Amino acid sequence: MAVAIIALIAITSTTVLLRAHPEVGHWRSTEALADYRAAHAELLATLPVAPERLDVPTDHGVVHALHWPGDGEPVLLIPGRSSGSAQWVENLPGWIGDRPLYALDPLGDAGFSTQRLPLGSADEQADAYLEVLDELAITRAHVVGHSFGGAQAAMFATRHPDRVASLALMEPVLVISPLPAATYFWAAVSTLPVPASWRDRALAEIGGTTVEEVRADSPMARMIDTASQGYSAQLPMPRTLDDEQWRALDMPVRLDLGGRQSLSGTDAADRIRALLPDATVTVWPDGTHSLPMDHHTEFDRLLPEFWDTADTP
């Protein structure tokens, strides 16, 4: 399962950096979209309850969301790159039926959202989530983000803290510290016309996993591989937030990092502990960048407990 998230980082961490002018994300072919749709449907079929599908209008396009009903303040789930709303299928069975859940396909990235205008900055991207909450008549939400989705969640919280009941960041990239230098090297290798064995090695190095795990087949791996190759993602690069931006966050914050391999930066845990002494910071010793899947059983329990605590005055 880890390769699903590893692949998207390897491919996008270099292509996003090299993109000079923002455009509109789009599927490169109807065949790629059909393959993605099939893998997405296969993953959703494993869930105990089928979601309601929503199309939410924003200035930059229509955001597609999966919705499960529940009670209390809702949860907004923002996935990593090239995965979309189905990234959370291993976590969702533990969360469905409690709070209202909204799993989004971010604008400009693979999924079923339709981008109309370019996203010129990370701030514009964050503001699109505000429009989503407004359209859904959500006053505040518990915001959860993984990888690039974690970066978007953090940006949204700094710009609109009054709309965030709690903030859970799982292996967020760039917003705490720059990517490790080795990531750029192996990401470049993965995008070159090299033998498949070299690319598999690069993906394994980035994800802190084995070549055998990289080569393992699963609906999640097929979906994200199709997305990373078949969708032309057009997204602004997240930026590292300064100390004052982090200190200004007054909602409960949870940060979870992989101990075996992390793309959040070597000093991410220490920095957040220093800037946000009340935050819950956990480094999972055997965790990788694919943390939500690595420890989905634990997060099925820990995140609802975190949300309940955040609700307590």
Rank of each mutant, 00 (worst) to 15 (best):
I5P: 00
H146K: 00
V175E: 01
P161T: 11
P238W: 02
T12K: 05
L249G: 10
P304S: 13
R53W: 06
S228R: 09
W246Y: 01
D286R: 09
H289W: 04
S83W: 05
P292I: 12
V144F: 03
Y184N: 00
L17V: 03
A168D: 03
D55L: 02
D98H: 08
P48R: 06
L66A: 11
I176Q: 01
E42R: 05
A34N: 05
W186K: 07
S121V: 07
E23R: 07
A128F: 05
P285K: 03
E42D: 13
R201E: 13
W88T: 13
L117A: 07
V173I: 10
P100G: 13
D123R: 11
A274I: 04
Q245I: 07
I224D: 00
W186V: 01
A154V: 06
A122G: 14
Y184M: 04
M220S: 13
E213D: 10
V214N: 02
W88Y: 15
A181S: 07
G207D: 04
I138A: 14
L107F: 08
A50R: 15
M293T: 10
T139A: 14
F299Y: 14
I272W: 10
I272G: 11
L130K: 13
D300R: 11
I176L: 10
W95G: 15
T282Y: 03
P304Y: 12
L167S: 05
I96A: 15
S218Q: 04
L54Q: 08
A45G: 12
Q87Y: 14
E213C: 02
H67K: 11
V214R: 07
L54C: 05
L169G: 04
A4W: 04
T14R: 08
E124R: 09
A50F: 00
L136A: 06
L18A: 08
P252Q: 09
F299C: 12
V132K: 07
G72C: 09
M1V: 10
A153L: 11
L302M: 12
T226M: 06
L117M: 04
S13G: 01
Q245A: 12
G25Q: 05
H146Q: 11
E23N: 08
I78G: 11
T288L: 09
L47I: 15
W307N: 14
D59I: 02
G230K: 03
D109I: 00
G149E: 04
S262K: 03
L47K: 12
D242T: 00
P195Y: 13
G25L: 07
S85G: 11
L179I: 03
A128D: 15
S83D: 07
T312M: 12
V175L: 00
A168Q: 03
L276R: 12
G84D: 08
S262V: 02
